[in-house]
């Protein structure tokens, strides 16, 4: 009799589990994932997983480029082409994001701390620091962005030079060639 009661109890619990499992499934699938916010975040995670599975072997620079686009590639280019003790002038926001034009940059490449993250140990000087920071008198390189910065060089460069990094004067060029 006792065994029979116990068996019945287990059966009831089993069926209750099945019923509530179906309800839970309906709740998550039909209700939670149908809500705009939850469905957005879940879809985003699924999308990211798809990317991860599609490109599992990307290196960190490749993943950084995928996320930050031109800003990362540009600073990587500068880091690869300047000495570690360089003092680099970075132009203002408008150079990176000219009004009314599409830009290859994303994020805040004009922000000093942002730039330091990719250019360290090189020193970074931004326009509002000119004359206020001792490093503004020790500039070795100018980051040229959409042609902005060419005017700071002590030698002439073709106006077609739109993007890159150049030594501030000829002496620096000689130093680098040595």
């Amino acid at each position: 009799m006792a065994n029979h009661k116990k068996q019945k109890n287990i059966y009831t619990t089993f069926w209750l589990n099945v019923v509530f499992l179906l309800l839970a499934f309906a709740f998550v699938k039909g209700s939670v994932l149908n809500q705009q916010g939850y469905s957005w975040v879940y879809g985003m995670l699924k999308g990211n997983m798809k990317t991860i599975k599609q490109y599992p072997n990307l290196t960190l620079p490749q993943r950084s480029e995928a996320k930050m686009g031109g800003s990362y590639s540009y600073y990587k280019y500068i880091a690869d082409n300047t000495p570690k003790n360089a003092v680099i002038y970075i132009p203002a926001r408008d150079a990176f994001f000219p009004k009314g034009q599409q830009s290859m940059f994303t994020g805040e490449p004009y922000n000093k701390m942002w730039a330091i993250r990719f250019l360290y140990p090189r020193k970074v000087v931004v326009p509002q620091e000119m004359g206020h920071s001792i490093y503004s008198r020790k500039l070795t390189h100018i980051a040229i962005v959409n042609g902005v910065g060419l005017e700071m060089l002590s030698y002439s460069v073709s106006p077609n030079f739109r993007i890159g990094v150049l030594p501030i004067n000829n002496k620096e060029i000689l130093k680098q060639t040595k």
């Binding site: 997983m49 996320k67 805040e108």
Partner: peptide, 17 residues
């Protein structure tokens, strides 16, 4: 999924960089 996403993509948000 969240952990994988976090580890796969490098830091890119403005406040952190």
């Amino acid at each position: 999924m969240n952990f994988s996403k976090c580890m796969y993509f490098p830091t890119f948000d403005r406040d952190s960089l």
